[in-house]
Nucleic acid binder design. Sequence first.
DNA 1: TTACTATAATTGTATATACAAATGTTTATT
DNA 2: AATAAACATTTGTATATACAATTATAGTAA
Lengths: 138, 138
Amino acid sequence: MSDHTKAVVNLVYTANIISDKITDALKPFDVSTPQFNVLRILRGQKGKPANLSTIQERMIHKMSNTTRLVDKLIDKNFVKRHTCEQNRRKVEIFITNDGLNALIEMDKAVCEAEQQIIVELSKEELNTLNNLLDKLRV
Amino acid sequence: MSDHTKAVVNLVYTANIISDKITDALKPFDVSTPQFNVLRILRGQKGKPANLSTIQERMIHKMSNTTRLVDKLIDKNFVKRHTCEQNRRKVEIFITNDGLNALIEMDKAVCEAEQQIIVELSKEELNTLNNLLDKLRV
DNA sequence: TTACTATAATTGTATATACAAATGTTTATT
DNA sequence: AATAAACATTTGTATATACAATTATAGTAA
């Protein structure tokens, strides 16, 4: 196997293992990884609402169906949605207090899972890894 | 964002971009990435059949439903399946000549896509990346 | 032999995702 | 003002995936 094939396979394979661990960490909260990421994006808005298109741009997992993902979060009372009055095509999505509180707990669980994965790497190695990945995505 | 969170997000995000590019490269052949990987596993058997459980172990993407994935490959005439005579619980799956020939073309397309992704990294950087990823998965 | 356990694969069901088409709204053009 | 074009989201449909339950076969112990 050529070096670049090996790197690609290695990268995808490793990312998959990590994704699985994060999925496991989120299981007690009954949210999927994309749902968790949407909650983090909404928290990052610091009170400002986010449109669907904004959320979609920022998601790690590209997601053709953000509408239904948000529906699930509404069912759980983690977010609220209403149409934007200035531009009635848009919707405005907010994270609720319930959502914020749940997110704190999720963060703890996910952070713990991440640390367990990364524990083998030194601070310097982490930096190297980040730089190589950044370079890869030029 | 902490260094380890950044690395995890970076890794999963990058792997996702790569997966998308590989999916695109395979689109002309009408096979999904897991299907492509199964074909590669079967070619690696060098004529020997593989059982479903063997395939499942080796797959990059863990796949609860290998039966139906193989069904799709049979529909395309890329693999054959029959039950193992020594142990009738098992099935034996072979890659066909059609499958082998198609796989050669797929390899070309995927290899090209991979090289386009990896082009920014030197041989030494590729090695570093591979080592860091290996370390991560201890 | 019969019952029990383990193994290997398949099937059923719910949910997730990708892609395309449709809906409703705003902006631009004539 | 009427029509067309662009935008933002939603809905429909097919396929993929995860998880649990089921079927069929093989091995083991009473």
